[in-house]
Amino acid sequence: MVKKGTLQLETLACPTCMQKIEGAIKQVEGVDQESVKVLFNASKAKFTFDSSVTNLDEIANSVKSIGYDVLKASER
């Protein structure tokens, strides 16, 4: 099933963080590549993903693994 996910991240300070986080989320299998959007000022990442292939935890961990804190993860 296709779900919409939102990650509330720690405050982002540098524009390259966006590229990194975007890259990290895109590398998770099951995430719709085109849908990944990192909101720099809101410090949020939004994307759609296939919940039969991956889950929110896995995506959040991919972001954590490159050193950014995930404060809150939600899906709908």
């Binding site: 540098c14 390259t16 590229q19 990194k20 890259g23 990290a24 895109k26 590398q27 490159i66 050193g67």
Partner: peptide, 16 residues
């Protein structure tokens, strides 16, 4: 350096 390596892992050439 850690940040630089992490961004390389997601194929981004960053300022770091």
């Amino acid at each position: 350096a850690v940040q630089a390596v992490q961004s390389l892992r997601v194929r981004v050439v960053s300022i770091d």
